[in-house]
Nucleic acid binder design. Sequence first.
DNA 1: AATAAGGTTGACCAATTGGTCAGTCTTATG
DNA 2: CATAAGACTGACCAATTGGTCAACCTTATT
Lengths: 226, 226
Amino acid sequence: MKLKTEKTGAGVDGRQRKRVDQKQVLMRAQNTEKLLKAGERVFSIRGFDGATTAEIAKKAGVSKSTLHYYFGTKEEIYEAVMNRILDLWVSALEEIDADVEPHVAIQNYVARKIEYSRIYPEPTRLWAMEMTGGARHFQAELRQRVFDIVEEKCNVIDGWIAAGKMEPVNPHHLLFLLWASTQTLAEDAAQAEMVLKKSALDKGDFEDARQLATRIFLRGLNLNNT
Amino acid sequence: MKLKTEKTGAGVDGRQRKRVDQKQVLMRAQNTEKLLKAGERVFSIRGFDGATTAEIAKKAGVSKSTLHYYFGTKEEIYEAVMNRILDLWVSALEEIDADVEPHVAIQNYVARKIEYSRIYPEPTRLWAMEMTGGARHFQAELRQRVFDIVEEKCNVIDGWIAAGKMEPVNPHHLLFLLWASTQTLAEDAAQAEMVLKKSALDKGDFEDARQLATRIFLRGLNLNNT
DNA sequence: AATAAGGTTGACCAATTGGTCAGTCTTATG
DNA sequence: CATAAGACTGACCAATTGGTCAACCTTATT
């Protein structure tokens, strides 16, 4: 039940306080990580309301009191979890780069996004749940961050269009379609498993989805003639 | 429909007194409708766990006890709500018809699905939440119903392919893409509003989405040359 | 050893909530 | 009117849960 850890430091001479602080900082980081990971899992299954701090704490291997020592309230740990997911969400958009040809960028974005959704299904689902639930826990700062990065990427797409590299298209709606198409397999895994009569999706399913999505988007945007 | 009326064994006296008159039946139908409508709204915002029977009852204009008189448990009203949504979900699939040319069918399906998502955003969101949350409240019967209808429609698509009317494509994944693409605006309205800096999406947004999705799917599937 | 300071937790509390129940109200029928 | 059956509800209860707190533990420093 304790996060104990394999302590025992080889060189525990305890001369400098600084070393201890480092150790404490490390422990804190580890516990924080465990709690955030557990939070991702529990929140992504039960949603904000359905999740209990007790279950998160248990899954992280600490007491509920410890969770509340690290994160004052349930909202606080939830926001910390969401913040982290936003980083992931933003990082995938790196592929939308003005210096890259649109057909390559979109191909890579689709691939990366689907790969993320396969590797990180819980953050993917949690993000979806938050949006579907009205983004009630998204503060102004997070909203602004989302808006800014999306605006930037829309400008990239408009740039491609202006440069004649791509047919005119509403960049916002293109992004909406890309997001939906690349997340659905993780987001609606239950639905896919129901339809495919599988107990779990495998790598091949995601690869099939990637190929179909890539094909449809590239040809659909008239970008496949390269 | 399946409003389980717990009839009581009133007929023990041998004669089924038909106390239930038309007015009562009407009232029951009206109240049931109000409760299901309220349930849709509250569940779609708060999720199963976050919703309270008290809030649903209040929104329906009856007491919590009345809700529990109509639906024994929270699960029961939730399932009734989901059942209804499944009807809607299934009805849209009517467009996928073997007697219709694929480019027409897909165009109509996209249009109908997006229109549904605009007119019925709450059922749309609730369905999405249920799937994202792992379809934990979907009983075997509902699962089978989903499987059967989807299997049927996949056969239609395979039929189009066999008839040379359409390029080979994995029909399941095509449906996944269609679902995701046509629901995202309602499902992720909060995200879209964040990105578009709007307080609410309007008809034009859905029309833009429809046009782009139609264009990309038809051309992406090489169906636009008909 | 003594001190200090942060880390950890069991026990506990107040609020919420799903569900129950006894009793009241309404209305068709005899 | 009297009856009976369903419709309806306020009051209530047991369980859950977010959050608190005093006590205890661990460890570096003096």
